[in-house]
Design a protein around this nucleic acid. Structure first.
Length: 295
DNA sequence: GGTAGACCTGGACGC
DNA sequence: GCGTCCAGGTCTACC
């Protein structure tokens, strides 16, 4: 079956899919040439389906590989809307971006939305998998987690959904390390899964929280394995841009842009984007660093 | 509050 | 093919 979902303009499916690396992490698959974003999704009743998202005149067309009842249709609509951030109005950010040459193209290119997973649990696990490793390692670990612990897609059992917290919680550190090569991250992912599965940690409530960004940041930092970079990245996925995800690349980029290549720390990265206030995360993320690529 | 060292893996490199 | 070194954030212990 198929659903048509409208997006707050401007909207570009490729801009969302390529907003950061998430589309390369299982169970996402992004076919750039065909313009199709696929995702193997869990529905509440435990059913696993594949969504294929394509552009449509006012938003997207979502194809699901099977019939859905009314409740499941609502779930797919809700998941796709969240994942693609369809409802987000970025008008205030675009108004500021027009005044900055390095951000002048974001509105025309409909940049600003960040692709996210249906659950904050999945995004938190994936964010932990981005830390202290190369991107190839993140892809490998996410693929292994999905393949080893995710429920299979009925029509194509070689593909799997992202593991549910309960499934990971029932595992143990030794198995996780052996089967997914998470290394020292295994106890972090296991602890997170157990906290969520037991109900001790309601990560999904963060999506609609009215708490100030600073308080949410502190709560994310309380998760073992989530430090300053990861918490800021997760806040960005929650639509809060008050903190910068400062990693080694960010320091290098700011060093080249404003400090003549001299080594800089987190303070210099913060200072470079402080003037963007509540939009600093987006300004940093979509800043046009391309002049340095050509150098 | 700031800092040093450990954590773990895969890739690059030299032999 | 093997061994060594390095990069990448976070945690813990210590000052």
């Amino acid at each position: 079956m198929e659903l048509f979902l409208t997006a707050h303009p401007p909207f570009s499916l490729p801009a969302v899919a390529e907003s950061h690396g998430w589309a390369a992490l299982a169970p996402f698959a992004w076919d750039e040439e065909a313009g199709v974003l696929a995702y193997v999704a869990h529905l509440d009743a435990g059913r696993v389906v594949e969504m294929c998202v394509r552009k449509a005149p006012d938003g997207v067309r979502v194809e699901v590989d099977d019939d859905l009842n009314a409740d499941e249709e609502a779930q797919v609509t809700h998941q796709a809307t969240w994942m693609l951030d369809l409802d987000h109005d970025l008008t205030p950010f675009y108004a500021l971006a027009r005044e900055e040459p390095r951000l002048a193209q974001v509105e025309a290119q409909a940049k600003g939305r960040l692709l996210r997973s249906p659950t904050l649990f999945e995004d938190t696990v994936k964010t932990i998998l981005t830390t202290n490793t190369a991107w190839s390692g993140t892809i490998r670990m996410a693929s292994a987690l999905v393949a080893q612990f995710g429920d299979p897609l009925p029509g194509d059992p070689a593909r799997h959904a992202f593991p549910r917290p309960e499934r990971l919680a029932a595992s143990d550190e030794e198995t996780l390390r052996a089967e997914t090569r998470l290394g020292y991250r295994a106890p972090y992912v296991l602890g997170l899964a157990r906290s969520v599965a037991s109900g001790d940690l309601d990560l999904e409530a963060f999506k609609s929280s009215d708490l100030p960004a600073g308080q949410l940041y502190k709560e994310l930092l309380a998760i073992k394995g989530v430090g300053g970079y990861a918490a800021a990245h997760l806040l960005m996925l929650l639509g809060r841009y008050d903190f910068l995800p400062i990693d080694s690349w960010a320091k290098t980029a700011v060093s080249r842009e404003w400090h003549g290549g001299e080594p800089v720390g987190a303070a210099e990265v913060e200072a470079a984007f402080a003037c963007w206030g509540e939009w600093k995360g987006l300004a940093f993320w979509f800043w046009d660093w391309s002049p340095w690529d050509e150098a």
